[in-house]
Nucleic acid binder design. Sequence first.
RNA 1: GGGCCGUUAGCUCAGUUGGCCAGAGCGCCUCCCUUACAAGGAGGAGGUCAUCCGUUCGAGCCGGAUACGGCCCACCA
Length: 947
Amino acid sequence: MTDLPKTYDPSAIEPAIYKLWLDANAFRANPADPGQPYSIVIPPPNVTGALHLGHAINNTLQDILTRVARMRGMNTLWVPGIDHAGIATQAVVEKQLKEKENKTRHDLGREALVARIWQWKEQYGDRIIEQLKRLGSSADFSRTRFTLDEGLARAVRQTFFKLFKDGLIYKGKRLVNWDIHLQTSISDDEIYHETVKTSLWHVKYPIAEDDLFSRGTGASPVAHGRGAHATVRPTHMVVATTRPETMLGDTAVAVHPDDPRWNWAIGKQVRLPLLNKLIPIIADPILVNMEFGSGVVKVTPAHDPNDYAVWQRQKGAIDIINILTSDGRINENGGPYAGLKRDAARKKVVEDLTAQGLLEKEEPYETQIGHSDRSKTAVEPYLSDQWFVKMAPLAEPALEVVRNNKIKFFPERHAQQYLSWLGEKRDWPISRQLWWGHRIPIWTKEIDASATAPIDSLQSQTIRGIQIIMRTVIDGDHGANYVCIPPGHPDIEKEFESQGFIQDPDVLDTWFSSALWPHSTLGWPDETPDLKKWYPTSVLVTGRDIITLWVARMVMTGLYNMGDIPFHHVAINPIILDGKGERMSKSKGNGVDPVEIIESYGADALRFTLTQMATETQDVRLPVKKLPDGRNTSDKFDSGRNFANKLWNASRFALANLAEIAPAAIDEKSWSIPDRWILSRLMRTIQEADAALSAYRFDLYAKACYDFFWRDLCDWYIEAIKPELKPGPRQSQVASILAATLDQALRLLHPMIPFITETIWGKLNEIRPIRGLEGRIDPAPSELLIKAQWPQFNDDLTSEGAEHVFTQLQNLIIAIRNIRNEYKVDQKTPITISISAPGDSGRQILANKSLIENLAICKLVDVSADLPAPPNSARGAASNCDLYAHNLIDSATQDQRLSKRREELIKQRAALKGRMTETYIAKAPPQLVKQTQDQLAEIEAELSRLS
RNA sequence: GGGCCGUUAGCUCAGUUGGCCAGAGCGCCUCCCUUACAAGGAGGAGGUCAUCCGUUCGAGCCGGAUACGGCCCACCA
């Protein structure tokens, strides 16, 4: 069976073709194979969810690059994988546990919960891999990795150990973002802000009586303007707050040192309402903005990042008091409020303040409140012990490689975000109070610190030839030994445990393991052949939202562990929004499921449309349509499906003809203008595709292919040669050119639409196994297109002359068709045409007479210079020619056409005349001036002919 | 508040270093179920390139400002 089915049905070909590739081991990479290395590591999708359109575009682009590289004969590897996504995944499973069994993680215990998450992972991880395969991904699935697999675990521990040894990991009390619901700290990057309507409460803090001996009558502070002298001093200070319950943890109030209203009070005290204790009035020019409100700020170091900074700046001057428990209740430091949840405490505090007359006013207020991305609850700044990575020594080299262009971003502007984020060098909090993740490889034992001066020392020890690192920290009344053990030595771990050391219960931030992805997936810390062959990787394709979280950290760890960059290029793909410009999400209900698109349009259509959309802008919109069954789709995918359908049908036509025609020797001298034109266009398209791909301009690659295949090959070349494919002198030549052109087009298109091109390729191989143009296009035969050679540009086949002449012929044909349409002549009836054309043009027209007659459905009778208009003829114009369609006169249509044309010409003439100023003639390039003059002359000539 | 991006045909987007009547797809109008394709073919309508100012012989493109929209970061108690 050599014929393609009459109808293009993607679902009928895609599974079989994918199997064909798998059976041929086409995705399998071998470091021992020849060829320059080319490698990509996938941005591992979170195991929490199914792939969405964002993944679809990201992976389509990676697959294009991978397939092109493979066709270019490079030794190509695309590493697939999945991210364990610590918080997100544990949250999902815990939620399920709660809903289905009404249990918490504590009911289950650590081991059982982790086991359950693994089960969950097996199920959903497979689904993601299946989705990648549906998409046509040619990743080497034998190398599929998971950020929590054994290899990664070793890489993580090795990296942690190295960092610890180098003194780059430390434990510190820090104000972290606390997710009360999940009971873990989260990084700044896992927070989104939401505008919340709340109140601004103005609370009176009485100034301590002892400090008021010099005051006069108790006037309101409002009565004091700037520079008013404090002969009359207020009895209290008013602070405004959106979180009145935190006043239980206030350890000071602050004023600006230059504020004449208050600077007299610095060093005195206020009485903290409700808890009835004295706290100092301090000066802090950074915290306090004199222009804002009363100029007095309450300071709650344990529950506000800014206040925490004050505490750090003024260490020793003020206390820090934590008033919350890890589940968001007031703790014992909150006196009578202990045990209340934060909302209840707020209510009670406000009531009590009101009762005591200390609430000056409450006004409505809108503010931004940080929420946890995972639990969607308001995060609490919370003081706790956390592990940190020192960023400065890691960030500096990572900045340098981007500054000096060793790593290049596409588009370039995205480097800015990378540079500015890394430039801040803020230490990275890496511990998470979770169970799902890489457990921190530190064993701790408290030590008696009462009689010792502060110590912070790092010692290396060797146990049975294995180096371990111990850090001893004694700070005031706390002391501990921290031991970090390298991977693979459970015996040593046991030994320390038997001595009373306990492993840290926390796990590492998910990004810690994904930061190692490029080298860890290739085998690090072992020096594997993969690592040697494919590190650094060629390009990272990702979205701009994780440039900081992920890209920057991969560069840091790559340089730190490998001493080399993880990738040469970073290609940022656009984010897909819905028609209203909003990000797609499940909760908004505007998401489009790629698998549903594959089911109704085919993977190739999905891929083609997404490739077209991969422009340089940061976002692209995809208008979403709701189907009656509730699913989302988009008309945008029509364009991909239509193109695939066109390719299918044109190929059917070509195959049907080629089956009848025996190949013959190439005779270039017999080639027509259309022959030379289509080959020239093919070469230009190869050039354009290469340029677009090396600039990661996937949209331009798609457009170049689309225009060539549909507009040039189908609309013009195939139509032009149809008569010649019948038995005759040119039959074998045009057949060879058609075969070669289709061959090359399939190669060009394959990376983008692999299924359909591979299907057609198979049939073409059966019908016409040899289809080059000897000495001009000499592709090596290949059973599978996925392994075929990428098209080569050959300048010998470009022809400006043929392109110029063919363009003129196209214009002429379009002009004749236009007359036919305007005069409503039936498509089947040829019209009679005479052309008045100057010598050169006339000769070309006569040489291509039958082409024009066929494509414009006409009969050419007279072609000569200065031909007078035949009687009763409709007229048209193309380039420097006048056309006459015999016996078509219809005075109304004719007048309309002529006056329209005249208007156009007059408008153009005015524009050109306006350009021809003295300065233009003097300053513009002479060729341009001449061009303008020529155009003007042509317009004048045509105008005179029209009058 | 700092930074980035966008504003071109009804919709979604191209427009490479400033220089041919500013392009594509979808939608719209007319005609055609022609022997590869109606998921198609032929032709057509539709744009003062957000606004203003500047540089230039010449600006969608370069510079400045404004307006509107989007995103990132930091956030005023």
